[in-house]
Simulated scan of single mutants.
Amino acid sequence: MPPRRRVSDLDNHLGYWLRMVSNAVSHAFAARLAKDGVTVAEWVFLRKLYDVETRAPTRLAGDLGMTKGAISKLADRLIGKGLVERTADPDDGRAHTLGLTRSGRDKVPRLAALADETDAAFFGDLEPSDRAALDRILRTLVERRGLNDVPTE
């Protein structure tokens, strides 16, 4: 039998540690959102609509790096929950726009507080300079790699 080649250990990779932290943060946030009746993807959708009155589904798909089909499914779910409404586009009778209902607009700040609390729970123990360095490094990687899809999972 030929000798085994030495291979690197899992924990020798930055991606391993990044994924460990990312998974923990994502799962904790998803669990908090679930108690409020929404998924992470729905939260992202709601948060994006919070800053605008209405948005065409195609434009929203581009903003979030999602397909029109995915946007349509999310919109349908959020309409069913009474958080989003679909209205006819006043400039194009064949098109429609999406916007938050009053309930949706009221819910976003509560959900944003959950995001802030989750962030503080996971990164609050870091020294401010370490947190700033981590933020700078991650943003640099995103920029250099041209990553622009909004995380929804």
Rank of each mutant, 00 (worst) to 15 (best):
I137H: 07
A41V: 07
S26L: 14
Y50G: 00
D63A: 05
K68V: 10
L60C: 02
E153K: 13
T67G: 03
T152I: 13
T87A: 04
T54W: 04
N23V: 14
D106T: 01
V25I: 08
R144A: 08
D89C: 06
T54V: 14
E153C: 10
G82Y: 01
D116Y: 02
V44T: 05
T87D: 03
D125P: 10
R144S: 09
G124T: 12
T67S: 04
P57Q: 02
V84L: 01
L126K: 14
R19L: 14
T39K: 03
A95W: 04
D116A: 06
I71N: 00
I79Q: 05
G62I: 02
T54E: 11
D135W: 12
L147V: 14
V52G: 03
S26I: 13
L64M: 06
I71S: 02
P57D: 02
D116K: 02
A121E: 10
A133L: 15
E53R: 12
D149I: 11
A121D: 13
E153M: 13
V40P: 00
T140M: 07
W17L: 11
Y16N: 10
R6S: 12
I71T: 03
L49M: 01
D51H: 09
L83M: 02
D92H: 09
G62N: 07
G80L: 05
A113F: 03
R59S: 08
R110E: 04
L114V: 07
L126E: 15
D51E: 13
R47G: 00
L83E: 01
A24Y: 08
D36W: 01
F29L: 08
R32D: 07
R86T: 07
Y16R: 11
S22R: 11
L126Y: 12
V21Q: 05
A121F: 07
T152A: 06
G93V: 10
F29H: 05
K48R: 11
H27V: 12
H13E: 14
V7Q: 14
T67Q: 02
T152M: 08
R4N: 08
A41N: 06
P128T: 15
R5M: 15
V142Q: 09
R139K: 09
D106G: 01
K73E: 12
P90W: 07
G82L: 04
R6V: 14
R19N: 13
A28L: 12
L46E: 04
F123H: 12
V21T: 10
K48W: 05
R136M: 13
L46C: 06
P2A: 09
R94I: 09
K35I: 06
A88W: 04
S129M: 15
L60T: 03
E117F: 05
M20G: 08
D119Q: 13
Y50R: 00
L83W: 00
R110I: 04
L10A: 09
